[in-house]
């Protein structure tokens, strides 16, 4: 059996043991957020870049609760609808934290938050040329995934379903095709609603799963964070173990010989 302690994955030269990346949005407060991150076992959290509140600078900030020295901050470009906006945001993020590993997402429209792949690929090229290591939110399109890799993406992160929808992995075939074709890590990003969805992503051979709302909007976010940790581990183990073949009909588990 593969020792889970040795099962790690590497993105842009950085090695992680946890295959679960969690968001830091939509929580009741920073304390609950920090407790959920702890329970999830995540080593990477996504964060957004926004204007500081000049009128009330004494408000608590994320960094007071989740220590960027212990947990890797993955700055995102959520809310960006053009390549230029995303690039500008990540240049600021690099200055705010000094990190090159970033999450690029360029959205096409507010209703679906579906990625605009033309803008995404363009931004990915520019960022990679500036030394960034973009992990890229994208459509579940195996060809777009290849194009992203050529554009310098260090990880391909197709959606399982629309952001915040919790609908689960809608197209297992395309996710599997992306996994099979990629030379960089593949993580399902968006669409996970409950633990079984995360397990499905891992059973398809994904290197990890990124989620936010499924944990933050659970009735008990800390418990759901733990459920997601276990689901990702279970799915990974199931993938490594190799599932049995599917049969069309029954096959008894007890011997037929020696029946009384």
């Amino acid at each position: 059996m593969t020792d889970t302690a040795t099962d790690s994955w590497t993105v842009a030269g950085q090695t992680f043991t946890s295959r679960l990346i969690v968001g830091t949005g939509k929580y009741k407060d920073f304390a609950q957020n920090a407790a959920a991150v702890e329970a999830s076992g995540a080593e990477i959290v996504t964060v957004a870049v926004r204007r500081v509140n000049i009128s009330d600078p004494s408000q608590p900030v994320l960094m007071d609760y989740i220590d960027p020295k212990k947990i890797t901050y993955l700055p995102n470009t959520a809310g960006c609808f053009t390549a230029e906006d995303a690039i500008r945001t990540l240049r600021l993020a690099r200055e705010a934290g000094g990190w090159e590993l970033v999450k690029l997402e360029v959205l096409g429209e507010a209703r679906t938050l579906y990625p605009n792949m033309v803008e995404t690929i363009r931004a990915c090229e520019v960022l990679a040329n500036e030394g960034f290591k973009p992990m890229v939110y994208c459509t579940d399109d195996p060809i777009a995934a290849q194009q992203l890799e050529q554009a310098g993406a260090v990880a391909i992160m197709p959606l399982g379903a629309p952001i915040g929808s919790g609908l689960g992995i809608q197209n297992q075939v395309t996710i599997r095709l992306i996994v099979e074709g990629a030379k960089v890590p593949v993580l399902v990003d968006a669409g996970v609603g409950t633990a079984s969805d995360a397990a499905v992503a891992m059973e398809l051979g994904c290197d990890g799963v990124l989620m936010n709302t499924a944990i933050a909007e659970a009735k008990d976010p800390v418990r759901m964070a733990r459920a997601m940790k276990l689901a990702v581990e279970a799915g990974r183990d199931a993938y490594l173990a190799g599932r049995m073949g599917r049969r069309k009909y029954a096959d008894p588990s007890s011997p037929l010989a020696g029946l009384i």
């Binding site: 968001g23 957004a48 870049v49 994320l62 901050y73 959520a78 240049r91 989620m211 936010n212």
Partner: peptide, 27 residues
Amino acid sequence: IAPRSTLEGVALADGDQLEIVHFVGGG
């Protein structure tokens, strides 16, 4: 971008436009 290492040295001028950002929770 105003690199952090230069913030002490960069002089402000009348009419300057600044954006000051930080990290907040996000997915």
